[in-house]
């Protein structure tokens, strides 16, 4: 219990008569990579917004490192499918955005941003505006900006959902590499079952009407993950169980 970075206790949220999230209890271990899969309307984005503090839950508590952060902001890194890079700032200034919004960007912050950009293949683009970048590069910048929040917990909401299949696979491998270096805890929303298994230590399956957690699978695949694993029996078996939950016996 003490190694849980994030703990949700009976967190619930409704919008009018619609139960977006029925009482949910969840623990996320420090340093782990946890994926949440589910169809739209299953409450995964509501769950994220409650954890991030954008939404106050109707009931329950959100604990981060045993501190109650329910309904408050400023304690997680957060990234969406839309990269949300600001067009009027350079790549470097986008990466340091969090500090600019909450404090002062120091020379150390800039140096760190540059180091990170160089390490992850964007060193030549530091002084470029985002409009000059491809979709995959923009998502990389967005992820570096998320890392530069220096938060221990990163919430990634379908970050690669808008990318083509090839770029997406590259980005997944890239993300695993960065995650290993950065030693953060990641909560990753996706509707792509393959993606959830390829990336995560643990796959949580959610279901709509009412939004709730229906299963929580440990992932047997070893690390580091390779593309070959996408066709391993363990992978296929877990995929089968998740697909069954998502699409019912009829599928």
């Amino acid at each position: 219990m003490t190694d849980a970075l994030l703990a949700l206790r009976e967190v619930a949220k409704s919008f009018g008569d619609t139960v977006a999230l029925s009482p949910t209890t969840l623990e996320i271990a420090e340093g782990s990579f946890v994926a949440i899969v589910g169809p739209s309307g299953c409450g995964k984005s509501t769950l994220f917004n409650v954890i991030a503090g954008l939404l106050a839950p109707d009931a329950g508590d959100v604990l981060l490192a045993e501190r109650d952060v329910t309904g408050t902001t400023g304690h997680v890194g957060y990234m969406l499918q839309k990269d949300l890079l600001v067009p009027w700032r350079t790549v470097e200034d986008n990466i340091t955005m969090a500090k600019r919004l909450t404090g002062r960007v120091t020379n150390e912050d800039r140096a760190e941003a540059r180091r990170m950009a160089r390490a992850y293949g964007l060193g030549e683009f530091l002084r470029h505006y985002p409009s000059a970048l491809s979709g995959g590069m923009r998502q990389r910048v967005a992820f570096m900006r998320t890392l530069m929040t220096h938060q221990r917990l990163l919430l990634l909401d379908e970050p690669f959902g808008a990318l083509d299949a090839q770029t997406r696979l590259e980005m997944q491998q890239w993300l695993l590499q960065v995650w290993r270096d950065a030693e953060r805890t990641v909560l990753f929303i996706t509707h792509d079952v393959d993606e959830s298994i390829f990336l995560a230590d643990r796959v949580i399956v959610m279901s709509p009407r009412p939004g709730r957690v229906v299963a929580d699978f440990p992932n047997p695949l070893a690390r580091p993950r390779t593309v070959d694993m996408l066709t391993e029996p363990d992978f296929i078996a877990l995929k089968g169980r998740i697909m069954h939950l998502l699409h019912g016996g009829a599928a």
Partner: peptide
């Protein structure tokens, strides 16, 4: 909202 989540 992103700025808000960051604590701005």
């Amino acid at each position: 909202n992103l700025a808000k989540v960051y604590g701005a």
